[in-house]
Simulated scan of single mutants.
Amino acid sequence: MVLRLDRIACEGHGACAELLPELISLDEWGYPILHQPEVPTDLTGYARRAAAACPVLALRLTR
């Protein structure tokens, strides 16, 4: 599974970083930084939850 971030659509709410701090942190303006797009198997559930929590659907989990 791979995380994809649409930086244009992102509004910097930060929910993704709160739900998946192992793979996402926030920059100084509150926008997410993906440390690694590939999601380890044990974090797939958390990645799904982080993508679902994005209010503007800027974060997607794909195969």
Rank of each mutant, 00 (worst) to 15 (best):
P37H: 12
G30N: 05
A50L: 05
S25L: 07
T44Y: 15
H13W: 14
L19W: 11
M1H: 09
P40I: 12
H35W: 03
P40K: 11
V39P: 00
A50E: 01
P55C: 08
A15V: 01
R7D: 08
A9P: 00
P32F: 12
H35F: 01
A53E: 06
Y46M: 13
L23R: 14
T44V: 15
C16F: 13
V2E: 15
E38V: 14
T62K: 12
L5Y: 09
T44H: 14
G45I: 07
H35C: 01
R48H: 11
P32Q: 10
P40A: 09
P40Y: 10
D6T: 10
V2C: 01
A58C: 10
P21W: 08
E18C: 03
A51K: 08
L59V: 08
A53S: 15
T62M: 11
L61H: 07
S25Y: 06
A47W: 10
V56W: 01
A50D: 01
W29K: 10
L20F: 12
L26I: 06
T44Q: 15
L26H: 08
R4A: 02
A50N: 04
P55Q: 09
A58L: 02
T44A: 15
L43G: 09
C10D: 13
T62I: 14
D6Q: 10
D42K: 14
L43H: 14
M1V: 12
L19Y: 12
A9M: 04
D6Y: 06
L26C: 09
R4C: 02
P37Y: 02
L23Y: 08
R49E: 14
I24D: 00
L20N: 05
I33V: 15
A47I: 08
E18M: 10
P37L: 07
P21A: 11
G12A: 04
D27H: 07
R7F: 02
L43P: 01
L19R: 15
L3N: 06
T41H: 09
S25M: 03
E28K: 09
G30M: 04
C54Q: 04
T41A: 15
C54Y: 06
M1N: 05
R63K: 10
A52V: 00
P37N: 13
V56R: 07
T62A: 14
A15N: 02
V56C: 01
D42N: 13
G30E: 04
L43C: 11
R63L: 09
V56F: 03
L59I: 06
I8S: 13
Y46T: 05
L43R: 15
R60Q: 14
A17L: 05
L5T: 13
T41P: 04
T62W: 04
R4N: 05
A58P: 00
L20M: 11
E11I: 12
E22F: 03
P40D: 10
L23W: 06
L20E: 04
G30L: 04
L59S: 08
L20R: 14
V56D: 09
L26R: 02
R63H: 05
